[in-house]
Design a protein around this nucleic acid. Sequence first.
RNA 1: UGUCCUGUGGUGUAAUUGGCAACACGUCUGAUUCUGGAUCAGAAGAGUUCAGGUUCGAAACCUGACAGGACAACCA
Length: 564
Amino acid sequence: MAETDNIGMDQKDKLPKNFIQQQIADDLAEGKNGGLVHTRFPPEPNGYLHIGHAKSICLNFGTAQKFGGLTNLRFDDTNPTKEETEYVDSIMEDVRWLGFDWDDRLYYASDYFDRLYDFAVDLIRAGKAYVDFQTQEVISEQKGVPTRPGVDSPYRNTSPEENIELFTKMKAGFFSEGDCVLRAKIDMSSPNMHMRDPLMYRILKQPHHRTGDKWCIYPMYDYAHGQCDYWEGITNSICTLEFEVHRPLYDWFIDQLKNSDYRPRQIEFSRLNVSYTVMSKRRLLQLVKEGFVKGWDDPRLPTICGLRRRGYTPESMRAFSDMVGVTKVDGVTDVAVLEYCIREDLNKRAQRVMGVIDPLKIVITNYPEGVVEELDAINNPEDEKMGKRKVPFSRELYIEREDFMENPTNKFYRLSPGREVRLRYSYFIKCTGVIKNEQGEITELHCTYDPDTKGGNAADGRKVKATLHWLSVGQALQAEVRLYDRLFTDPDPAGHKEKDLLEFLNPDSLKVLTGCYVEPSVKNAKPLDNFQFERLGYFNIDPDTTSEKLVFNRTVSLKDGYKK
RNA sequence: UGUCCUGUGGUGUAAUUGGCAACACGUCUGAUUCUGGAUCAGAAGAGUUCAGGUUCGAAACCUGACAGGACAACCA
């Protein structure tokens, strides 16, 4: 079970409850459901999970934990045309990675196909369902529109006996796709479209990823979901707001099914939106399929696998989920909140290292040639237990090109001609010469160092304004560094009715820097290991890393107090 | 001219159920610092969509507007 981050359960219990937990607490106080709380996370295995699902996972598992209850993982696999085992596997991986465990409570809607069929027969026998042979277009037409009532199907009053025979034939494969459907007989004039004799079953002559060719009729979501909840003993069926208008139908089926006081209760909350990105499976699929990103795990995507590859930790994502809260208001959460969560987590835990992503060579003219010193560097100033390491220093070094300005502005207090700065953990240096090529570009700096400042402090107590990160040319490891920026230039790219999403694609969302260097201590790092490159940001090892090529992703930059 | 849902600083939420609108992110100061990070101290920023009403007292309750969203898939 995932522990609540950084706070004990006792404290967590005292945190203000969101409206769902409030409602559950009220139900419990009234003695409903025998004091039990049982939730479920019910993804359809038709794609990869994103951070919105992460919120749902945290909410479902977290709420159950809070009340000492349980959570099931259930795959909502009622549409064989879209679902694949590959997705089942990735979803399980992502849920586990986030730190949650469903123990032995793994279910599939397809586990219930027989029971759903039997229940459908019961409804037919009770005169509450019928087989309709009209075309999709006609049925749709008869349903009317939200502002106008629908009209009854001519098949609405077929006798139960005949309907049972027809439904049996449907199941037996006697009809073709589209020939007929099974509908619930409810109310064609209901103001709620979902109550106008909704479809329960359709014919799909497609193999199912679990049941193979056993079935050629498949239940619709609305017919399956509540019943699955009921059979699993789910007390609180938490879903997103778009299902709000489905609730009367959810309840209608449960009413036909239940034989005790117990009933699962559907509660809706607003889906998560994060600024500068998109969250719908359809749009994510488009970005992947049309090649605007490099796959579901592209680090620019808000998918769980993308964020994982980007360097986000499970802890940071759980913290984010707690932070955004749960309401029925639809809004857009600032991506800065997500970035805050990963910075806060990694600040406490990430190994510090020096990396230079845009190198400028400097020569310490008064430092002996051929000498390499090993200097002490602190692995994490936030955590003494992480200890120290050695970093090599020599006559030729790389510093960040950005850290030098030939004609410094007022606010720039890093290296410039004649100015003294500190190289982290080593010496004070002073810039004595600027070497340029024929184009006037700076190719190299000449500096001198003060041997009396070894370790980074002057014997005479003088101070410098800036401390720079650096690497020794001879020992630095070459690396490729991938810098990511927001995928879209608009905070709400999907929120424009008149404009296509793609108009807001950020052309600079990925920058690949190949001539970068890192210190030799990262040599044995493994994929996904997180580091802080001092003064630059948090970076992790990309799985593209090979023995020949080190590849880093920038998870997020450090907050930058220096504004140009 | 339908039904349902939702309106609280720039953003996300809270207000123990009718008692001085709080917290976080972000922004801006200052201190401190061998990361322009972190840390510490502080500031600005809403009077709760609007108009009525009930009440000693309303973000909350009532009425009516207005705004946004969901619903018309043999998707989930």
